[in-house]
Design a protein around this nucleic acid. Structure first.
Lengths: 342, 342
DNA sequence: TAAGTACTATCAATCGATTGCATTTTTTGT
DNA sequence: ACAAAAAATGCAATCGATTGATAGTACTTA
């Protein structure tokens, strides 16, 4: 455990003032470039490392971005985080990540921690049942930029990063209709969440546009877990008028549904076509492989982090950009291609 | 943007000294409990939040744990991280996460950042081709606890958290042998990494113990990507003496191999049995579902974080516990059950 | 040559919480 | 009621970097 080197040590050694050393290390224009070279060299030689606290204390910023997500361990979310980490790292920001585990209560606690850790900005994808955002008010009041991604909550002071979920839902269902489906079931999540509400809207829009009736009993709100997928398949089996297509807003759930359907003797896609959402790797593994909506996770993470950082660096004002919509697209695979259309 | 409240503001308001306020807020025994109540109440009322930098600057610790992983977005890793986050959060530590993207160079950069951020401790799973750990020496020298998990590097000053990879490999291969396999291929990753080297050792041990020859040409070192799985299947097809079993040390890679094998006309498990590693969700989706080694990711994250935190709180000395081995087990599914044994 | 300009570098205050030591207040025992 | 012990509080230095104001130096320019 050697002693930590400070700018004072460097200053003393070079018979300069700490102020000069500080400025030199920060590449301040008022310092002679020879002096800078000298100081930088000495700093390296002495093994100096800047003390972030002292610096933060003085500057009142942390170079840290907080991230709150429902859960870390989903393919989609970890991909988003990977994208954020990449951008943040390149801009030399640190990322503090915490998960709400889909509970508002934990989300509130996490927000408080982030607030106390004085993150420079916050990236949030809200929990399953969050409906107020009082717990983020503190950030807004203090002018700490707050940016929602994927599961967003509309707020005039916050930017949100999303895909066009209405269009995605519309595309998925239109595709099913074009494959000849006339009775399409929709398995989705909590409709409080924009992502699910919008996809439902897209579903309805597609039906309407193709002259199909909207039957509320075909919409199944679940937690989109694997069990929910299995359950959906069972329910389909027990329906008097069975659907000939199903649009599930989560790949894993869709895959479980698909597998169960097969077990129950249905032929996919001929008896019933299946479309998922997210383009999770599993969608390529299941048989038949799953038609799904490709969701640009890494991109979303990158854009979110980059926008926030640009805002922090004064390059872009988040307040003015209220919404960023990323491109998503339907990936057609075999789970939805009825043989009649080959 | 309101002014930030400090202990000085509270002190002035209550006509006390900042020292007393500080002590009261930290529940110092020398402060009268009535005074404490008074101060706590006032702090809440005024909306005080502690300034972590000032505190850190003074105390020389950060309540932050650094984590360096190869990549965030794998099922296994995100599960580990979820476990870590849970424990850290409960102990009110923050987690700074960064990914090396399997490159030593990035790993070195990340380590430097972590060092400069003065994390209180570091949790590391090394990159694909890391072979020296000079970049962690700084931590060791400074007495900053360093703990490796999963992909570990032996070091007498560091604890490592692993599963018994030799045993896992042994179990997997023994199972294949018991199913009647006599010529077993092994698709694995860089043998510099303990996890792969150990599994290979287990593979060899199982062969030896059952009187089967070790044929080096059956061991295929790859990057364990999905393409590698496909490639492995192709190679199997082109072998003069085809194997009747394959042990792949990664589920996703195994699944791709399995699917390709099927496409090439092999019957799984009858022509060739497949065993994977990790118990990734995909292993239950593929058909036939994949026999694999269940790997306790969340547990590993929890144990790693908890050990580190205990050490930091002086409850446990990391130096003495040199290695923690978690339990893993073989999960038998249909990809390896030859019909003769039904 | 005096004054003006542009560079460089320094001074000293500041960010907010912590803590060893000193001081004041309260309690205890006689 | 008073000294001694115990409890509660205050003082002031400290952690290290930053920065506005200021001073010194060298070089121009009139």
């Amino acid at each position: 455990m050697e002693k930590e080197i400070t700018i004072y040590d460097i200053a003393k050694r070079l018979k300069l003032s700490p102020a000069t050393v500080s400025r030199a290390l920060n590449d301040h224009p008022a310092i002679n470039s020879d002096t800078k070279t000298l100081i930088t060299a000495m700093a390296r030689q002495m093994g100096y490392r800047t003390n972030t606290f002292a610096s933060n204390l003085r500057r009142q910023r942390t170079n840290t971005i907080g991230v709150i997500v429902p859960r870390l361990n989903s393919n989609f979310m970890s991909t988003v985080l990977a994208g954020m980490e990449k951008v943040a790292n390149e801009a030399s920001y640190n990322l503090i990540i915490s998960q709400s585990l889909e509970s508002v209560k934990k989300e509130i606690a996490n927000a408080k921690t982030m607030f106390n850790s004085r993150v420079d900005g916050l990236l949030v994808s809200v929990a399953y049942d969050t409906d107020k955002i009082d717990h983020f008010e503190a950030f807004i009041k203090k002018g700490i930029p707050l940016l929602f991604f994927d599961r967003v909550i509309e707020h005039k002071q916050c930017t949100s990063i999303v895909i066009d979920n209405v269009k995605a839902g519309y595309d998925a269902v239109t595709h099913l209709i074009e494959q000849g489906c006339r009775r399409i079931m929709h398995v989705t999540g909590n409709l409080k969440r924009n992502v699910y509400a919008d996809r439902l809207a897209g579903y309805q829009q597609a039906l309407r546009q193709h002259g199909l009736p909207y039957d509320e009993s075909l919409v199944m709100v679940t937690d989109l877990s694997q069990e929910a997928g299995t359950e959906a398949a069972r329910r389909i089996q027990n329906m008097p008028e069975r659907p000939d297509g199903v649009f599930v807003t989560n790949d894993f759930c869709a895959v479980c549904c698909l597998i169960t359907l097969k077990k129950l003797g249905f032929s996919v896609p001929d008896d019933i076509a299946v479309v998922g959402f997210n383009d999770d790797p599993v969608s390529q593994v299941v048989e038949p492989d799953l038609t799904t909506i490709h969701y640009p996770g890494a991109k979303m993470g990158e854009v979110a982090a980059q926008s926030l950082i640009n805002h922090l660096n004064g390059l872009l004002d988040i307040q003015t950009t209220n919404k960023i919509i990323l491109h998503s697209e339907l990936v057609v695979r075999h789970s939805s291609l009825k043989s009649s259309s080959y």
